[in-house]
Design a protein around this nucleic acid. Structure first.
Lengths: 180, 180
DNA sequence: GCTGTCATGTAACAGGTTACATGATTCG
DNA sequence: CGAATCATGTAACCTGTTACATGACAGC
């Protein structure tokens, strides 16, 4: 389980409410760890029960109250322990690759359409990452510490998307040359 | 759910027992879809109940009997329908990226050690894929149909591993330059 | 007889997904 | 007053993980 640790990292950077966290997971953190708001609320509740985070109810103007979570010293210790532990390599999951491999047993054109869709999606993500990179880190040479970490992880997202684009382009080129 | 569809693809290529399938998932198919033998046995049992696959008990010399599964016509129809349906982009999960982003809140040296471990693992995978590629597809220019599909998906694995290696190398270089 | 491999599972639990529920406030 | 947004959740279900269990045969 690592969602709780991803939340500890995000809350260490900046305390936040459940909804704010779920928005971060749609943006930067979602580049490398996906989570829905239901997962986040459930996990935050358990973490609060375990004393890893503390809640402060913050009244807002013109909006409902929000519960802002902050990492406790116990939570910081849990995070430090987890960071020092060995890291398993995450299992790979690519539904599209299963379809690409199995295209012979169905409508190949439909699989090519899925590949085209994914290619567009990965291009869009790459563009978003690169825009984010230019805006947030205009001069990477000056970065240190946490800023350097965040930039490098963003660079990883860029590389991953580029690898997808190259892979899917290869697939399309190979299969459009075959059926002209 | 896609394990059942991954099994249909693999069994379409060649009928197999549960153990043989789990070995395929440790080799080629595991490049893009991980599964343990427990998952495979459980899913095969359900697929048999649904009539997607049919079992033949095959006696062996000097070994226990094995249950060989083959795709039925109903299973082939399920696979064809699934191949024609839209494909969601799989959520991303990188525990190591979470740690790389959170390194400031723990022992950075320990995180660097994890990165080094993963780098070695990805280099080993890349070498295995490239060896497999040379042996199985010595001349990619002649490939068509399912062979072309399988080669292209293997190429995707190569690209993914290469992207990981570049990413992790960047991280290590940036952080060893920082602390000489 | 012990170890290793082949072969198939069961059971309990943790984690993720999907659908639905609730209530406040702002804006038109 | 109706729609949209903010904000937090519950419940049911499905999938994945981990640990354990069983039995046959081969080779030393």
């Amino acid at each position: 389980m690592a969602l709780e640790h991803a939340l500890l990292v995000s809350l260490s950077e900046q305390s936040a409410s459940g909804l704010e966290l779920s928005r971060r997971f749609e943006r930067s953190i979602g580049n490398f760890w996906a989570a829905t708001h239901q997962q986040i609320y459930r996990t935050l509740a358990r973490m609060e029960g375990d004393g890893w985070v503390a809640v402060t109810v913050v009244p807002q103007q013109g909006k409902p109250d929000k519960k802002v979570y902050a990492v406790t010293s116990a939570g910081a210790a849990v995070l430090a322990d987890w960071l020092a532990a060995p890291t398993p390599v995450d299992p790979v999951r690519s539904t599209l690759s299963v379809k690409m491999r199995g295209a012979s047993w169905g409508d190949r054109e439909a699989v090519l359409a899925s590949v085209t869709d994914h290619l567009a999606e990965h291009r869009a993500r790459l563009a978003a990452y690169e825009l984010n990179e230019k805006r947030t880190y205009p001069d990477p040479t000056v970065l240190t510490g946490g800023d350097l970490d965040r930039w490098l992880v963003l660079r990883g997202g860029v590389r991953t998307e580029q690898a997808w684009i190259d892979y899917l382009t290869d697939y399309l080129v190979a299969h459009t040359q075959e059926t002209p």
